[in-house]
Design a protein around this nucleic acid. Structure first.
Length: 395
DNA sequence: CATGCCGGGAT
DNA sequence: ATCCCGGCATG
């Protein structure tokens, strides 16, 4: 979500109000483009530069994306002049080679650890069962970002994530919301730390050489945040996903084919996985439909894809009261071995439960009403009593 | 018209 | 979640 928002929202604009934070990343990401920018702003002879502006801005918004939501704000606000000065400084000292490379990377580590959190995010409603992996809607945005921001270069990212993870509480706080890493942009450095403070210190000591007041501010301009908040929503496992993009996000390396193609392919192979979910959903919509017969059929009946365990919700209650007459049990048995399998498969074919309300013509099977008659309505199956599709004598 | 059951409301 | 019913489709 955040990614999407930020993508569109050109968060870089409000740099004046954001202070250093906004600016810093702005610069880092833009590399030499920053130069053109500042030149222009300084009311220079911008003819030569003006051409860049548009392109630059687009780039900007992209690379900068993940910063927006950072709760962390540098307390001090900086004057425009100061910012400009810093920009010049940075742009001059940084070679394009160093700046251009990795803009935003996927941290494999981060991706792994996000699985747990998601798994329990079950919610009410139909998809309660595997929600964690299905729901992460934001994932598509990740995909887009990846594509748009060029290649994923992991160089250096792996370096200090572990050690730095325990650096500063403050950084932790930030991390909790936007698990970011910070990459040093100093020419030839590229060091990555997970803590902002740590990164500052790194820059101050190693690159700025000392702890002068001046450098205190400047270090902000020499690192960029590599946010991984995007990835954290990506499903770690090959879970079924109906929203295109989820798979892409967690398989940036394995999925080489074009996105367009994937959409279709999802229907074939992954469908085998995703389909059941829809089946569950459909069958559980009304408990009376998900009762004994269907239950029995679905879980063991389709070994192909139903290896997963059913959630408690699907466990049906003993639907048929003990007081059932003989004919009742017969009907159920018949039902169990006949209709249900066909039914479930048919339904699974339709991915969306939405309007699969094709009314099958009136079946030949006698329903409870006919069998027992209205006068013995209490012997009907619950579905029939509720004027639902008869579950005892399905068609 | 009788029947089957979807869609939706009530609790 | 459970129960019920209006109303439509079908034969």
């Amino acid at each position: 979500m955040a990614a999407v928002r930020s993508r569109a929202g050109l968060d870089t604009i409000p740099m004046g109000t954001e202070g250093q934070d906004g600016l810093q990343s702005y610069m880092q990401c833009c590399g030499q483009e920053g130069v053109s920018m500042q030149k222009k702003m300084n009311s220079g002879p911008g003819i030569e530069w003006s051409a860049d502006v548009s392109a630059q801005q687009t780039n900007l918004s992209f690379s900068h994306s993940s910063r927006v939501d950072l709760p962390y704000r540098s307390p001090e606000s900086v004057e425009m002049d100061e910012i400009m000065a810093a920009m010049v400084l940075t742009s001059l000292s940084c070679s394009p080679v160093v700046q251009s490379p990795p803009q935003r990377d996927l941290l494999p580590g981060d991706m792994e650890c996000c699985g747990g959190e998601l798994s329990d995010s079950g919610s009410s409603g139909y998809w309660s069962w595997d929600h964690g992996s299905v729901s992460p809607a934001p994932s598509p945005s990740v995909t887009e970002m990846d594509r748009s921001s060029g290649q994923l270069t992991d160089e250096g990212l792996h370096m200090e994530l572990d050690q730095a993870a325990c650096e500063e509480p403050e950084a932790r706080r930030c991390k909790s919301l936007s698990r970011g890493a910070y990459r040093c942009l100093w020419p030839g450095c590229g060091k990555v730390l997970t803590s902002r403070v740590g990164m500052k210190r790194h820059i101050r000591i190693l690159h700025l050489g000392g702890g002068s007041e001046q450098s205190h501010r400047e270090e902000d301009f020499y690192y960029t945040e590599i946010s991984s908040e995007d990835e954290e929503t990506a499903p770690p496992s090959p879970a079924p996903s109906f929203s295109s993009g989820a798979w892409t996000s967690c398989s940036s390396t394995q999925s080489q084919s074009t996105p367009g193609h994937q959409d279709t392919s999802v229907q074939s192979t992954p469908l085998s996985q995703s389909a059941p979910s829809s089946v569950w959903q459909i069958h559980t919509e009304h408990l009376y439909q998900a009762c004994a017969p269907i239950q029995v059929t679905v879980s063991p009946g389709s070994p192909t894809f139903c290896t997963w365990s059913l959630p408690g919700g699907v466990q049906q209650k003993p639907q048929i009261p003990p007081s059932r007459s003989r004919s009742v049990s017969v009907g159920e048995q018949w039902l169990q071995r006949n209709s249900t399998p066909t039914r479930s498969q048919t339904m699974s074919a339709s991915p969306s439960r939405g309007h699969c309300s094709f009314r099958k013509g009136r079946g030949e099977a006698k329903k409870c009403r006919k069998v027992y008659g209205v006068e013995r309505r209490d012997q009907w199956c619950t579905a029939c009593r509720w004027k639902k599709a008869c579950q005892r004598f399905p068609d």
